[in-house]
Amino acid sequence: MFTSRPATGSLAASIHNLHKQYVLGGETVHALRDVSFDVPRGDYISIMGPSGSGKSTLLNLLGCLDTPTSGNFFLGDLDVAAIDDDHRAEVRSTLIGFVFQSFYLLPALTVVENIEVPLLYSGRLDREARQRAIHLAEQVGLGSRLGHRPTQLSGGQQQRVAIARSLVNDPRFLLADEPTGNLDSQTTTEILELLDNLNKEGRTILLVTHEPEVAEHTKRKIVLRDGRVQIDERMRPC
């Protein structure tokens, strides 16, 4: 069982020579070629690039939803590129928090219950779970909507629930896939402020986006093109 112990070094993650290729319609597609970078703890990285550049593939690999064809991906001292399906699920539930473009809340569950879902899989569903979920809901400003269903919430509110859910296991990493892609500019600002604050509290965040103004919020910008890192630019100190 993994626990989210703090990383021993100053690196939250480290990626070495990551390759990913798959066969699509008889043709071999090189989605990622030789991608390497380090993620220091507390970093705030935006990953950009045109569609087909490998952003999603990289995110799936970082999120342990997929395995690379070759290369290493260290989370702390664990090489998650080499572990099996159940093991990856464990990493997802303990070390990684996901925020998606379309929120991906479960419609049958209330706000609190949605926040609790990852606890069910990390084995931390104990008597205090409910308190923790409520506390997180309050942190993202939804303290008054605990019993609502996702369909009764606005897009911004749903994304707040999703963010609260991603934090419930206190992960090392927050992975956000176009978190503001489905939101209007007013809500986008609010959500980005929320992410900024989480980073200020020391949370390591990677977000995929194609909007430059979103990328402006982050400390470092990685641009992919044709599966390679084209630009890796630090805008603010980590």
């Binding site: 159940d86 997802r92 990852p118 859910r165």
Partner: peptide, 16 residues
């Protein structure tokens, strides 16, 4: 199917 994907992303193992 989508729900299954969400649960898997949130850490559900196959047997869950």
């Amino acid at each position: 199917t989508r729900e299954i994907g969400i649960r898997r992303a949130l850490g559900a193992k196959r047997h869950d």
